[in-house]
Design a protein around this nucleic acid. Sequence first.
DNA 1: ATTTTTTATACTGTATACAAAATGCTTGCA
DNA 2: TGCAAGCATTTTGTATACAGTATAAAAAAT
Lengths: 227, 227
Amino acid sequence: MASEVIEQAGRRTVTAISRQSLHGEIVSRLRDMIIEGDLQPGQRIYENQLGEELGVSRTPLREALKFLASEGLVELVPSRGAVVKRFSAKDVEDMLIVIRSMEMLAARLACAKASDEAIARLRVLHDAMVRHYQAGERLEYYKLNQQIHTGIVALADNAPLTEVHGLLQSRVKRIRFIGHEGAERWASAVAEHERIIAALEARDAETLARELDIHLENGWERVKSVV
Amino acid sequence: MASEVIEQAGRRTVTAISRQSLHGEIVSRLRDMIIEGDLQPGQRIYENQLGEELGVSRTPLREALKFLASEGLVELVPSRGAVVKRFSAKDVEDMLIVIRSMEMLAARLACAKASDEAIARLRVLHDAMVRHYQAGERLEYYKLNQQIHTGIVALADNAPLTEVHGLLQSRVKRIRFIGHEGAERWASAVAEHERIIAALEARDAETLARELDIHLENGWERVKSVV
DNA sequence: ATTTTTTATACTGTATACAAAATGCTTGCA
DNA sequence: TGCAAGCATTTTGTATACAGTATAAAAAAT
């Protein structure tokens, strides 16, 4: 395969230039592969094979797998290596409960601490998202949607909260990504977002938390059928 | 060194017997060493040296370090290896905010889902804790205290919540461990716990959440001075 | 024909060796 | 005496080799 040769040549160059280590590079790459479904849940990971594909030897690959295991994206089975973690419906439901709670916490903190400029930046994202909705561009909509939720968490200026939220978010991403909602649900989701941004701009913590609660509860219903 | 030989011989035996992999063994060991202050914040970890101490080669040790890096207990500096992570006062404060929120969530879930037997088991732990308080046994008290908080989270029957709570808990552990509170504060902490268990037994979610909120807010004040 | 045992193969776990990078020290020079 | 440059040493990063274990297939026995 031509791409593999390019990959190998690229690696050396990238390693030299980029600030990221090879380890970090592999971690990001594998994380994306898992989230985007390139590596499917339950699939066993053969170190030799995957290492060859990525153009790296087993050592840094194994280190990356350990890292991802701690993130909960792969499972380490003793003497049988790594397997892409598979989540049950309950697992996903449980994650969404926690994510919802964390976003509500973030919302309250954000109302108290966020700067006007930071909130304005979220409004810009929101408006862009609405335009993608009106244009029917689901993928672009989805990406901005994610960014807004992550953005609200970021407003709370609480690193552990951001980290843990991102951790769980990355696990449900590959499931949410599949979820294509119907037109009327999509419309109401956008309306919910509008109210969320408005509450944030008003710095009305309780309204914001309540709206997020409703929104994520609905989102959960939207996803539920897929899992 | 004689101990090294014993260590190495011991390792082979242990590896054969224990269900845990050597990797898992090292992870647990290092985690304890960090939490208990054996490895101090900011301290650089020399792989050769530490590997020799533990009687393992660099490969599994490095894999364990990557795992702990993902847990947030060590930091990986490119080309300069691993350093025990140091947390600022704000970091700790932020963690405690998140932990508090998660315990409150757990409390609400627990009131709805926990079995009577599970709650009864917590009551037993609580009573034992009170006895240790009365005997003035701080360490034993502290351990049961931890167990009770972890136990409440466990009652929620939400694996991701348990995992994430444990993650943050392990980071603040080494700080809390140092925190020795005064007699009157200790007394009020015990009283708060009594109310918490009572609310749990009554399955009064809102009271339980409120009491936990107060308790953890106070606990934060208790710790604050130390950091 | 089915089940059990043996054997071969493939993969993981661990150690070691080598290469590249960083740090610290020494020596030379101003 | 102070500074800088180069060299030596230490340490990390990566590859490879070897050992142990699980899996699968084939052969033998019931």
